[in-house]
Structures are given as structure tokens and as C-alpha cells.
Design a protein around this nucleic acid. Structure first.
Lengths: 255, 255
DNA sequence: GGTACGGTCTGGTACGTACCAGTGATTCTG
DNA sequence: CAGAATCACTGGTACGTACCAGACCGTACC
């Protein structure tokens, strides 16, 4: 077989070589097979070793190849990456055959703490809605939510029924569809007031989510949710797909 | 401030430079700030430009820096579009500019508990490898791993260096590429022995992952990892892709 | 037979050089 | 003064060289 020629052209040589090698790895060679040595490749394609190494480097970073010092460079088996698919609280609960409900603790307009204001892109003294809720499944408390929502794009939010999905209210009443979010998850231990709200002992393990959601690039929500670690689990499947694009499903689960 | 000197030493120069730059980016500089130019760095640290570029390359790959042709190289704001790799403890730590390490607590062949045996598809009295490890970042304990691995497909596993990625050993030595996993996450509170291993107070909040991984449909791993909830966070970025199908990227993070 | 030693593959590190290609401020020119 | 040309930066590509270090194999030696 004669090798494709690498030339000075529209794309850099190392990119062309990369494509040649990726093609070779995917078709002519199988997983665990060795690709030609670097010195072999440089004569075969008439490029320098650094160009060969750069091409291989990028394939190694992408997980297509892996190197072993002294032995060679080999085709990797497709590696694992994951993307998560997240469902809403209500959806999760219903999927588990449980009935979700919400207990509204309070709604009021207030000036949020500076970090919240910053997340929401608000001026330091701008007011926002503060909404505190307890989420329940089959009547048992699962999570405590402390949310802040900018008041300017959401006039009269406090006059709505806040016992259900806020996202539905945003979409139906204000025409604001939440389309992105940043979420951070960590562990915490319940303090006295949180424990009381969740009807749990002080010191109960909690899963804490902080989520900042946006509609059309505008932050609309800053919410911290504290889930009972003993009643709530997150489950995800990590599966292989194709190189660089894997998907997973995630579900909340109550026990 | 005088620059740390880069020398021929135990670790390659580009690795040393990488650490220096990661430190600089994280502390002296903030997001969007420019790092010194490549030619500046090569005189400042007395290394060649290719060494400088190699150090920067790896930080770019990890998302810490980004380059703009003609303008410079800049510190990235923590972006969250990178993907979660399943065996990514080390990579996640490095991405945060921390140095990962592993402390092996013990390896032995033993008969696993029935639930583990069931997960791994083993007979009730079949032996398996039990591997206990503490994962550290910058020398501080982050997670405690208790893993079980079937002994039949993994003969002599205890003779390998278990201070790094087990997945790499599986792939390189046994030709077993992990290609799927089921993972469950919940909250817990540290008991006495876990607390001791993690050098944390009893009652510390933990994030607990249970993962069952498989290669070619055969279960190869049952591992429970307990992360310190105060030092480890998971961050996910949720974006709407198509109607009704959200995608996310996830990465581990230490604080 | 077993061990030790080279030789020779492999990839890993590091140097230097040269030139190309964006970016943006300065300077020249009409 | 407005626009074009220039220049001094930045990173991007590509070359060549040299030597180090791990893996493997064959051979010479006990």
C-alpha cells in the first residue's frame, strides 16, 4: 500500500499526518495493534520526527493511541467519557413511582448576598425574589431549596402558585425558557435548622447542589438544594459511544 | 518575585515549568490575565522554546490556559465543557494544578461479600482481589477507595504497581478495556475508620460513589469511593441541546 | 541451564534554527 | 485627517540534531 503524501498545503503537516494515522488506526489496524515507529513514519511520509510526534501527541490526547516507552505506540480501545442527562425533581420522583410535592416556606423580595447578586448579574443593591421550599416524595422531606430569582424580569412572581415547577411559570408566564445551567455538587452535614426542615437528625449527611440557571444567557436562578444523603441517590450509566462523544443517563432516586 | 529555577532533575523540565506556570496562573494571575510570552519564558527560565511550548501545551489541553495567535496566552476562567473521564482522578487533580498521588493500603485475594460477588457475576465462594487505596492531592487525602476485582481474568494483579491507574494496567497487561459502568452517588458521614484514613474528623461529610465497571460486558470492578465532601466538588455544566435532551459535562474539583 | 552483557529496537527529552501568520500600535502618505 | 504601509510584538509550523531510557533478543560466559 502506498502512503498518502504529506505536503505543504492548506492544513499543517501534523494535522494531515494525524488524519492519516487516525484512518490507519481505525481501519487497517485494530485495537492494541502497534502503529509504525516514529522513525519509520518520518521516512515514510518525509517529515521530521517532531512533526510525527506532534501528530501522535494529539491522537494520544484524544485517547485514540497510547504509547509505551521502549515498545511502541498502540491503538487504544475506545475510552470512556460521559455526559450526563439530568431530569427535574418532579420527573425523578414520578419515575420512581413516588408522588412529588412541595411545601412553600416563604417568598419575599430582598437584597441577595453579594455572591448571589454576582451570579445573577445584579447590582449590589438590586432586589430579588427569595423562595424557600421543601421538596417531598410521598410526603417525606427529601430536599431543602433556597432559591434567588431576579425580580426585574419576573414581576409579580410571588402571586403565582409556587408549589410546582418554577420553570413552568417562567416559561408560561414570562416567556423565559431555562436553557442552560451550571451546577456544583458537594457533601455537607445537616445543621440544626436544616435538620429541622428536613425532619432529620442533626449531622445527617447531605448532598448539596448549587445551580445557576439561565434563559437566553441571562441568569434567572441561583438555588442551593440540600438533599438528604440517606434518602436520595444519583444514578448514572456511563457507556461507550464513539470517540469523544458519549452520553449518559442520570436519575435521581429515593430509597 | 524571583522565579523558581528549572534544572535537570528527577522530573523533566517541561513538567517543572508546567507546575510553575500552573501555580502562577492560579495565584499571581487571575482569569483572563496573560502569562508571559513564550520567548520571555525561555529566557526567564533558561529553557528552549520547545520546552516552554510543551509545558503550555499540556496546560492548554487541561483547560487551564488558552492561546490566541498574535495576542498571547491567557488564563482560562474555570470552564466546564471538558468531559469526565472515568479513570480521571489524576487528571482532574492536575487540571486544578494539584499533584495527585496514591497511597496503597493493601492488596489481597479474598472472598468478597455477597452483594459484591453478585455485582461482579462471581460464584458465592469465588475469590477476588481486594484493593484499598487512599487518593491524595498535594499530599492531602481526598478519597478512600475500596475496590474488588475478579481474580480469574486478572492473574498476578497484586504484582503490579497499584499506585496509578488500574484501568491502564487492565488495558496494557490484560487487554481489558473498561467500556461501561454504572455509578451511584450518595451522601454519608465519616465513621471512625474512614475518618482516620482520610485524616478528617469523625462526622465529616462524604460524597460516596459506588461504581461497577465492565469490559466487553464482563464486570471487572466494584469500587466504593468515599470523597471528602469538604475538599471535593463535582461540577457540571448543563446545556440544552435539542428539545427535551439536555447534555452536560462533568468534572471533579477539589477546593 | 542460567545469567550477564551488548546491541538495537522503541519512545522521551531538550536543544537550536528558521520562517510563517495573526494583532495592534505607530508612522508614513495622499 | 483618513487610510495605508510598516514594524514590533504574539503564537504556529517545521526542520535537524543529540542524547537518555525502557524493552527485547541474541550471544558469550560461567
Amino acid at each position: 500500500m502506498q502512503s498518502r503524501v504529506i505536503t505543504d498545503g492548506p492544513s499543517p503537516k501534523h494535522v494531515q499526518l494525524r488524519e492519516v494515522l487516525a484512518e490507519m488506526a481505525a481501519h487497517e489496524l485494530g485495537p492494541d495493534a502497534a502503529i509504525p515507529s516514529e522513525r519509520d513514519l518520518m521516512t515514510r511520509y518525509d517529515v521530521s520526527r517532531s512533526t510525527v510526534r506532534k501528530a501522535i501527541d494529539s491522537l494520544v490526547v484524544d485517547g485514540l493511541l497510547h504509547r509505551t516507552h521502549g515498545k511502541g505506540t498502540f491503538v487504544s480501545r475506545p475510552r470512556l467519557e460521559s455526559r450526563l442527562h439530568l431530569a427535574s425533581f418532579s420527573q425523578d420522583m414520578r419515575r420512581r413511582g413516588m408522588t412529588p410535592s412541595t411545601q412553600l416556606l416563604g417568598v419575599r423580595a430582598d437584597v441577595p448576598p453579594s455572591d448571589v447578586a454576582k451570579s445573577l448579574g445584579l447590582a449590589a443593591d438590586a432586589p430579588a425574589w427569595r423562595i424557600d421550599r421543601v421538596r417531598l416524595a410521598d410526603g417525606r422531606p427529601i430536599a431543602l431549596e433556597n432559591g434567588w430569582y431576579p425580580s426585574e424580569p419576573l414581576p409579580g412572581l410571588d402571586r403565582h402558585d409556587l408549589g410546582g415547577s418554577l420553570y413552568e411559570i417562567f416559561a408560561d408566564t414570562y416567556g423565559l425558557g431555562i436553557d442552560s445551567a451550571e451546577q456544583t455538587l458537594w457533601g455537607e452535614v445537616a445543621d440544626a435548622s436544616t435538620a429541622r426542615r428536613l425532619d432529620a437528625p442533626i449531622g445527617t449527611a447531605l448532598l448539596v447542589f448549587r445551580r445557576v440557571s439561565a434563559a437566553d444567557g441571562l441568569p434567572m436562578e441561583h438555588v442551593v438544594s440540600r438533599y438528604r444523603g440517606d434518602r436520595y441517590q444519583i444514578h448514572m450509566s456511563l457507556g461507550r459511544d464513539q470517540l469523544g462523544s458519549d452520553r449518559t443517563a442520570t436519575e435521581g432516586k429515593t430509597s
